[in-house]
Amino acid sequence: MAREHLSNDEFFTNLSGLLEANRKKGHGSVFLTQKRLNFSLDFSTPVLTKVADDPLWDTHPENPLPLIVRASNSKSTKRDGSDRKAEAKVKFSTVVQPDAIDRFFARYAEVCKAGMSAMKKRDRTKKKKDKRKKVKAGV
């Protein structure tokens, strides 16, 4: 499977698109995975190989390794007797270089926060009450 990896920027564009499509549709799932990329970019040879007499063979690499981050939706097929529509699988991935990890995850958090808007908001009513109390106490 020689699928091209996206650049980090393209990945975020696609990811927000995927989350947005999910929101518009009103239901669905988005899967995100992250894993160490233990292969060179042409997927021919692993960077680290298992050493028989060293149980900790993969825990002390000489250089930091990149990560691969994948995103996909859940494919759905049309089913009789339900209003479910057929939907194609969407998947894409990106490789994050070690020096870009902090930047990547900062943006990742923003995109996720914006895209996962259907989750429960904080209960505002309680908070307001607490604030009033605090103000009173402060005065």
């Binding site: 992250q34 894993k35 160490r36 825990t59 002390h60 690499p61 250089n63 930091p64 390794l65 990149p66 990560l67 994050v96 070690p98 990890i101 902090d102 990547f104 995850f105 900062a106 990742y108 958090a109 996720c112 926060k113 996962m116 808007s117 989750m119 429960k120 908001k121 904080r122």
Partner: peptide
């Protein structure tokens, strides 16, 4: 598992921390 929107940012932040372990970078 969570259903609270307030946790999303923090959780993705911890994914970043774990990402550093994966990449074999020193801890932040």
């Amino acid at each position: 598992q969570t259903d609270k929107a307030a946790e999303v940012g923090r959780l993705v932040g911890s994914l970043g921390k774990l990402g550093r372990h994966m990449a074999a970078l020193p801890e932040d």
